[in-house]
Design a protein around this nucleic acid. Structure first.
Length: 554
RNA sequence: UGGGGUGUAGCCAAGGGGUAAGGCACGAGACUUUGACUCUCGCACUCGUAGGUUCAAAUCCUGCCACCCCAACCA
């Protein structure tokens, strides 16, 4: 990686210098999810930036649930969000907060604004307010704008007391009815909502709007840098207005960065929820989902997701990163950490005709050639084996150098075998492959020095385990299902999940525990499913396949 | 339309007056008891575009174009 800093870090460093806004202070950020859905890999970018900035400068990062709208939020998400963040390895220590912790203070600040003549109670209905918002050439209006302070004070207190129905009144900031930035045209800062709140119950029936609440939350917590995504850029003047007009000493600064997208998937909560509710996926944690729980179940490591974001960098360009890059980050980590095992996903029987019937030999195989300290294991070998259908071609294509009649290959760590013939069923499917082994090649090397180009994996048909293997592909067939004019659902990949129920894996996998990860030699990285895998029914999810430079027929 | 942003390779992304880093993807080759990994080489005569300033411009200036966000009593 280059040693250049992203633009946010540059700003932070500049402000920490002598004479800077934050000179002598400790960098303090926050991650403020709304508890209304599951975290996805896009959130992980914000997590990386928020917690990352704190870590990089010896600062702190708070976790804060932004629960200012009881209509949308629910406790069920709070624990899931915390779990995902912990899994990624971020630590908020004892600084876990809720926006609702500050409802009392926010109310007081609202009163302060009214008293200063900077806020007023407006009785316009949503429809009327919309009509009177004005357009680019005409200013907004409200007949209640100049109502006496005492009247607003009284009305606001009665709003809080529950005297009015939802939608009857709002508290508005008195800013600028002519601003080209409509966020400044007397924005609503409090609305009435009689729905019970997941934490404060029915204590409140008025709730602060994000634009009013967020700067206060930040200031109250002593946040120095409030990092958020690009769509809040136009809200920054309002953020600053709130900070400047209430009696609070802390002056956080909001800095915006671009969110992250990934090809072949969708990221909005609405679209993701749609997939779940229409049973197009098995749930929020379906291994095809870009949610953190989905990626985790798929077999992604926390580290690979972090690395992915670190290497993508931070900018203000709306980025859609190639899914292949995420896969690369996973492969890179698992290549050095995952134990190798042999698993045959699409089995076909191979018989070594000249191998003694009833004989069983043991061989040792390295667990990970990238990491010798992981040692070796023992596998058994006998006359009948399972090999992958892909490793045999009755009539080989050009440049195919695996098994075909007359050709020799090495069975990983054991013997060199030569294909003699094959048997087929009525439909032409290969049902059995006949081969002979070179008994002098024990371990895999020939005695006469002839080169064996291919090494294939196998499992002992007399000593192996059945397994279910779930092969995943991208959820959508196009790079940007989001951008298309058509319905993104039209691009759902009908083959995003292939279930193989008759896979064969080596006996050493007997004690596999849920979430264990392996490299199935020459095939890919697999993760025992955290929900469905059991000792008597192994289920492996393919997290990502191995790269394959073989191009059929070329 | 008004306001706010952004344009460097197929995708990310450095570089902010001195002659285009790096990664992914892709292609070629070496090595290989994983067609993996690793290694080598290749991959922008040019930075949205048109002008201008300068000995020198991706970098400074001006105009234009394209795309994204906002115009909720959502966050």
């Amino acid at each position: 990686m280059s040693d250049s800093k992203n633009f946010i870090y540059e700003i932070i460093e500049e402000e920490m210098k002598e004479g800077g806004r934050c000179y002598g202070k400790r960098v303090h950020t926050r991650f403020p999810p709304e508890p209304n859905g599951y975290l996805h890999i896009g959130h992980a970018k914000a997590l990386e930036i928020d917690f990352g900035a704190a870590e990089a400068y010896g600062g702190l990062c708070n976790l804060r649930m932004d629960d200012t709208n009881p209509t949308k939020e629910d406790v069920e998400y709070v624990e899931a969000i915390k779990e995902d963040i912990k899994w990624l390895g971020h630590d908020w220590e004892d600084r876990f907060f809720y926006a609702s912790d500050y409802f009392d203070k926010m109310y007081e600040y609202a009163i302060e604004l009214i008293n200063k003549g900077l806020a007023y109670v407006c009785e316009l209905s949503p429809e009327q307010m919309h009509e009177m918002r004005g357009d680019t050439s005409t200013p907004a209006r409200s007949p209640y704008r100049d109502r006496p302070i005492e009247e607003s004070l009284d009305l606001f207190q009665r709003m809080k007391a529950g005297d009015f129905e939802d939608g009857k009144m709002t508290l508005r900031a008195k800013i600028d009815l002519t601003s080209g930035n409509f966020n400044m045209r007397d924005p609503v800062i409090y609305r009435i909502n009689h729905l019970p709140h997941h934490r404060t119950g029915s204590t409140w029936c008025i709730y602060p709007m994000y634009d009013f609440a967020h700067p206060i939350e930040d200031a109250l917590e002593g946040i120095t840098h409030s990092l958020c995504s690009l769509e809040f850029e136009a809200h920054r003047p309002l953020y600053d207005w709130v900070i400047d007009n209430i009696s609070i000493e802390s002056k956080p600064r909001q800095i915006e960065f671009a969110r992250l997208g990934i090809t072949h998937t969708v990221m909005s909560k609405r679209k993701l929820r749609n997939l779940v509710e229409n049973n197009l996926v098995s749930g929020w944690d379906d291994p095809r989902m870009p949610t953190l729980c989905g990626l985790r179940r798929r077999g992604y490591t926390a580290n690979s997701i972090r690395t992915f974001h670190d290497r993508n960098g931070v900018s203000k360009v709306n980025a859609v990163v190639d899914y292949a890059f995420l896969e690369f980050c996973l492969r890179e980590e698992l290549n050095s950490t995952a134990l190798r095992v042999m698993g045959v996903v699409h089995p076909v029987k191979l018989v070594i005709d000249n191998y003694p019937e009833g004989l069983s030999e043991e061989f040792t195989v390295e667990n990970n050639p990238e990491r010798p300290e992981d040692g070796v294991r023992t596998v058994t070998f006998s006359r009948e084996l399972w090999i992958d259908q892909d490793d045999f071609m009755e009539i080989p294509e050009k440049k195919y150098f695996r098994l075909f009649p007359g050709n020799e290959v090495r069975l990983k760590s054991t013997y060199v075998i030569k294909c003699i013939s094959c048997e087929k069923d009525d439909e032409g499917n290969v049902t059995l492959i006949h081969a002979e082994y070179d008994k002098d090649s024990r371990g895999g090397n020939t005695t006469d020095g002839r080169k064996i180009k291919a090494t294939i994996h196998w499992v002992d048909a007399n000593n192996c385990l059945d397994a279910e293997v779930r092969l995943y592909d991208r959820l959508f067939t196009v790079e940007s299902p989001d951008l298309a004019d058509c319905d993104y659902m039209d691009f759902l990949n009908p083959n995003s999940l292939t279930i193989v129920s008759n896979a064969k894996v080596e006996a050493s996998l007997k004690n596999t525990k849920p979430s264990d990860r392996f490299q199935f030699l020459r095939v890919g990285y697999f993760c025992a499913d955290s929900k469905d895998s059991a000792p008597d029914h192994l289920v492996f999810n393919r997290a990502v396949s191995l790269k394959d430079s073989y191009k059929p027929g070329t």
